[in-house]
Amino acid sequence: MNGAVSREPEALPPPPEGESPAVQQVWGRVVRELADDLAIDAAARDRKGGLPFDEVSRLREAGLPALLNPPGPMRRGADWRTACAAVREIAAADGSVGELLGRHYALSWSGRFFSTPERAAALELRAVREQWLWAGSTAAPDTGAEPDLSLAPAGGGYLLNGSREIAAGVAVSDRLVLDAVCTATGDSLVVLVDPAHRS
């Protein structure tokens, strides 16, 4: 089996209100070109294993980590339907990269899910500017399972303790989104962690 994958390019959904067809056509072309590039050596890379640093660089060069952010100054974003279509096309070419991108999109909205609109907007601007790739996992509260991560107040912040297996992207991510139980209050909190800073 060679690395080439034969597939029909996926049609992107109709543009949402406020998003021009020209913007969507640009994203469609960018996604197709990257998918074609990834498909050439996807099987060989999969057999070889290793960390996907090169693949993440290709995603960044194409601007795909910022795709789901709202359009506007310093943002080149689109909507969820467009992002999901992009994930499907990338996954058809390279399943591992598609999984990485899909998780990134879901987690990149963590600020909207768990914070104030002001903080979420500031976080998104920084993530776009610095081209963050997001990874991590959050558990549903009240599942009855023993918490695997805890947050202990320390100085002006918190110390994260414990361990968790995460499905994809940890070694190549810029930020991790994790849930942990605060040792002082017992509350379940969602935290943003820079994996480059261990302390």
Rank of each mutant, 00 (worst) to 15 (best):
P13K: 09
L160N: 07
W134M: 14
T143L: 07
A78F: 04
Q24G: 11
A171H: 12
A122F: 09
P71K: 13
D187A: 14
E124G: 11
V191M: 03
W109H: 01
A22F: 12
D79E: 11
A66W: 07
W134E: 08
H104L: 02
A106F: 00
R60S: 00
V128C: 15
M1Q: 10
Q25L: 13
V190A: 07
R112N: 13
S110T: 05
D194S: 08
E146W: 01
P141R: 14
D174T: 05
A127S: 15
A122Q: 13
L59Y: 02
V56G: 02
R7S: 09
R75P: 04
P195L: 10
D46W: 00
S108W: 00
A127N: 09
M74V: 14
V23E: 10
V128Y: 04
G50L: 01
G95E: 15
P15C: 02
G136N: 14
A127Q: 10
G28K: 08
R126H: 14
I90G: 07
R81V: 01
S6V: 08
W27K: 11
S115R: 14
G77S: 09
D179S: 13
D179C: 05
V181I: 12
P16F: 03
R76N: 13
G77I: 06
Y105P: 00
S199L: 13
L12M: 05
P195R: 04
A120M: 13
G169V: 09
A184T: 04
V56A: 02
R119I: 11
P71Y: 11
T183D: 08
A168W: 04
E118Q: 13
R126S: 11
D194F: 02
L38M: 05
V56K: 03
L192F: 12
G186L: 09
L125D: 14
R7F: 10
P195F: 10
A4W: 09
V23L: 11
A180Y: 01
F53R: 00
L192V: 13
A43R: 12
S96K: 09
V181L: 11
A11Y: 00
V97T: 15
V26L: 15
P65W: 07
E61K: 12
A85K: 03
T143W: 05
M1I: 01
G18Q: 08
D187L: 11
I90W: 01
I166D: 10
D37L: 12
S188P: 01
R198N: 05
M74P: 03
A66T: 15
F113Q: 12
L176G: 01
M74Q: 15
E17G: 09
P21Q: 14
D94G: 06
A184F: 02
L64Y: 08
A85M: 06
D142K: 10
A11K: 10
P117R: 06
R198C: 06
A135Y: 08
P141T: 08
G77W: 05
A140V: 06
L189F: 02
N2R: 10
A92W: 06
G156N: 13
F53N: 00
A120R: 12
M74S: 15
C182I: 03
L34M: 10
K48L: 03
E165K: 07
D36G: 14
I166Q: 08
E61V: 12
P117M: 11
G169A: 08
R103N: 05
S108F: 00
T116Y: 01
T116G: 14
R58L: 08
L107W: 02
A86T: 02
R198F: 03
D174R: 00
P52N: 00
